[in-house]
Design a protein around this nucleic acid. Structure first.
Lengths: 174, 174, 174, 174
DNA sequence: CATGAATGAGCCTTCATTCAT
DNA sequence: CATGAATGAAGGCTCATTCAT
């Protein structure tokens, strides 16, 4: 929401007013991008958590795929950053979006982590704390890799995703 | 920077114009708060990392003290959030602040982590990655606990700091 | 001038840009409509005031025909409303139009009224005042009958024109 | 609504933004002015129509006082012009204002006119038509006297109000 | 010191107009 | 001829900042 419509237009190679052919206003532009991001995130969630693997394997897959998508589709990252940190966004159906986030993005991870705890694969710590730690680690770490200065090739730091996941899950394992 | 001067004044129990008796403008107000926060953070850094303990013990102390200070002095948290995530703040001496952050807050942690790696206490992963993971985990996790809705007593979730540190360092240990 | 070109185009069953094949711009569109309306109004003026009848008869004919034309050709009504009330319209040759209005639409009525006064048919009141009263009554009353809600058939209120003219001229008569 | 906030500010001798200390936005500014005007109009209505005089005398008083107030308080005039002509104004409680107009400004006149008809003082014409004629005449005539070019002293045309009322009521009388 | 009315730069948004197809 | 995507000038509104009291 801090971006100016003029900048957005310029980045899209358009004039200031042209953006309004595609979106009624700034808010609905953001809304559209967030909904698109939500759908992508939900797709990843379902593909990785709806398998027969153990919770640990599933969550590793989940984390890896999310991080990769965040690099390629920064708005998915922004979606998580904003909704996880519950910084209200002044879009029309914010509550609905927040609800959907809870139901379709947050809860599945919570359930997988609880499964992991109960099956003894994960440390025996309050699941709520582990979920916050899980997302916090992914988002917090990604924040320092996914910046405005995308002048760095991923080649420069090829394995950060794997490294982060290695350490994170070593910490989570029982 | 998203707060309005009117809100700041009201929270301080002052009229809109009175704030300008203490600060020349919004930027220097932020600057002052950030410098104050910087000094607090630096104090914590020195007190916890300048000891004879092993890197692991020192970093655990560091992490615990930082998290505690973030709860009580949110501006220290904001300082880390902004400078670590390199979202430029339009203050006058931003580069100087960033330099000081690098030198006095970021480097000491990097050095401790490198010590930990070389001494075999920590996993053998590129130190730069571990530092980002370290701060990312602390900041990212803290973000979901330190929100605008500070209506929750810390008593409600008493051990989250310990739990986070437990998991984080289990992941970092060799 | 408050209508949008998009609405005008849609009402004409055309695309937004197509209107510009027929008119250079909004102003010349309005100008054309007003000139057309002016010619219609002038026709009525000449047909009704250029007779050998008494001023009273002529002005009654004039009033009746104008009101009828206003119902069927709202732009004639708009012409009177705007030029009589001297709300300047930003068309190119506004002064010329205003001049023509004065010369060919306003003056003939003024002359007829002055004739009526001098011949003793009309009350002995400053002619300027009577002209303003005359047009004011017609335009003001018509305004409440000629609205956007043209869902009412004229059949619903069949005699308002006659009634208005009856009362108006009863007032004007000596 | 066609005025620009910049013009309004300049006419008030204020800067563009200062107007927003007194009104939240353009619409509520208009709303306030209209409500103020409504109260003035209602006061005049009550003072002139709530007497023991005959309908004719009362309505003459009413007409005279309204016209005088329109000169001195143009927003009262604007109120009548807009609500009588039912050009919807995009204020928040337009329907409420319209209702109040009907109840407290329009109906009392209608009743007085109906009284006049039934008592035989007025011509026997559908009351609705007479009301529209009554307001239409006042508003339409006033429109040509109350313009933006208020450079003309009232002294220049001292008796127009009396003349208009004379003619109007001569027309209305039985 | 304290205040809030006043200010205007800057941003969002609308809409008449252009132009490539 | 017809179209609608693209444009930018212009107006509404916000908010950091100033200043008279």
């Amino acid at each position: 929401m801090n971006m100016e419509m003029g900048d957005i237009a310029r980045k899209a190679g358009l004039g200031r007013g042209t953006v309004y052919h595609y979106y009624n206003n700034k808010i609905s532009l953001i809304e559209d991008l967030l909904i698109e991001a939500f759908e992508e995130a939900q797709k990843i969630t379902m593909e990785t958590l709806n398998t027969n693997e153990s919770p640990l394997i599933r969550l590793e897959q989940y984390a890896k795929c999310q991080l990769r998508s965040w690099i390629k589709q920064p708005f998915v990252f922004i979606l998580f950053k904003n909704l996880f940190q519950s910084e209200p966004i002044p879009i029309q159906n914010y509550d609905e979006l927040l609800n959907n986030f809870q139901t379709h993005l947050y809860s599945p991870v919570t359930q997988a982590i609880e499964e992991g705890i109960h099956s003894g694969q994960f440390v025996s710590i309050q699941s709520e704390t582990l979920v916050k730690l899980f997302f916090g680690t992914l988002i917090g770490t990604a924040t320092s890799y996914i910046g405005k200065n995308n002048d760095l090739d991923e080649a420069d730091r090829p394995n950060w995703i794997d490294d982060v996941i290695t350490v994170l899950f070593k910490g989570l394992k029982a």
